[in-house]
Write a protein that binds this DNA or RNA. Structure first.
Lengths: 188, 188
DNA sequence: GCAGTGATGTCAGTTGATGACATCACCGTA
DNA sequence: TACGGTGATGTCATCAACTGACATCACTGC
């Protein structure tokens, strides 16, 4: 596994995030990112499929962990309890670094192309979650609906978490959103 | 308003859809589309912001009509009734040409970039719907939730409509999805 | 040492997208 | 009729994202 300086992928990720923050996504050339990371543009595209993916390739790990949490949940868990377990796994993975999440979120919200990529990643996560629920024996339609609900809960919770001054944990925000969901559905 | 042959935008739209169907989105060059429409590539980009947008610019009209339906709904309508009215307006606009919808859907599902664009268009519609609900006096949180529910219902209904052999109207599919939603939420 | 392997560099090329400017068809008006 | 204004289009040049082909370098195991 020979190379010049190890960790090119991490350096590219960090350089990209910082440059996107400093001057904006459109104003950042792939050449700039590569230069700051000490590699060439060609190498950037060997690590990331495109200029956007550098912000999103961590999603694979997230999906992996949330699906693992699904498998480990007790056999008696209901569909929504399974979803909650998956979301807790997500919170454990990214919840410890609000600063990073905030930077990433700021960059993504500032650019339409990045928002597109964010949406499709979330949609992929939702589909994977629904599949995981089916593997746990949840019925087809119920799995789809529960996964969509989980996606909505996560969206709301994440937004509250990054908007909060820092006195709210991501996991707490998820719990709160779930509670609000129960209130709303009970009220109708 | 002088020009060579009128309706360049429509010709480009039709040429693009057909070429995307015939040989795929990636294998279709903007030059090919422009040539088939009898214009130059530069003109394509004057009509459409990018190569994907040619399939999505009708969304603006859709949003307009659904918001108009919101305004016209009776003052006594509940949040979900307002959402249903908006979705019915959508069905009235695109529901008459299942063939076109199917072609468009086939092309979009075959390409990741197009799926991304589809998702952000739907997200924009959802946000606009939530805003419309707020203008109708619906509370903030309730408006967001109702709009998201409407979005989910539409997704499911549309898929059923294009999957059906043709013996199901889009409007009927939407009604069915709403009914199922009520069943599910009542069951819990 | 020395061959093998994998990550990187180099280079050329394609395609999407945009700015600047010229040109053409039409429209109203003197 | 002639003429100037307006808007859509063409032409040209250019940038930047991305890709394929091939060379090269550093490390590994023998």
């Amino acid at each position: 596994m020979g190379r010049w300086e190890p960790g090119a992928g991490s350096r590219l990720r960090e350089a990209a995030l910082n440059l996107y923050l400093e001057r904006g996504f459109d104003q950042t050339m792939v050449n700039d990112i590569a230069e700051r990371a000490g590699v060439t543009a060609r190498t950037f595209f060997r690590h990331f499929a495109d200029k956007r993916e550098v912000l999103f390739d961590a999603a694979a790990e997230l999906e992996e962990k949330s699906l693992a949490a699904l498998e480990e949940a007790p056999a008696t868990a209901s569909a929504l309890e399974l979803v909650a377990a998956a979301l807790d796994a997500v919170a454990d993975t990214i919840g410890h670094d609000r600063e990073l999440a905030l930077m990433r979120h700021t960059v993504i919200m500032a650019n339409a192309d990045l928002r597109e990529r964010e949406l499709i990643k979330l949609a992929q996560m939702t589909a994977a979650l629904a599949d995981g629920l089916r593997r746990r024996g949840i019925g087809d339609a119920e799995a789809d609906l529960a996964a969509e609900i989980g996606s909505a809960v996560y969206r709301v919770a994440f937004r509250r978490w990054v908007d909060a001054a820092g006195d709210l944990e991501l996991r707490e925000a998820i719990d709160q959103s779930f509670a609000q969901l129960r209130t709303l559905t009970a009220a109708d």
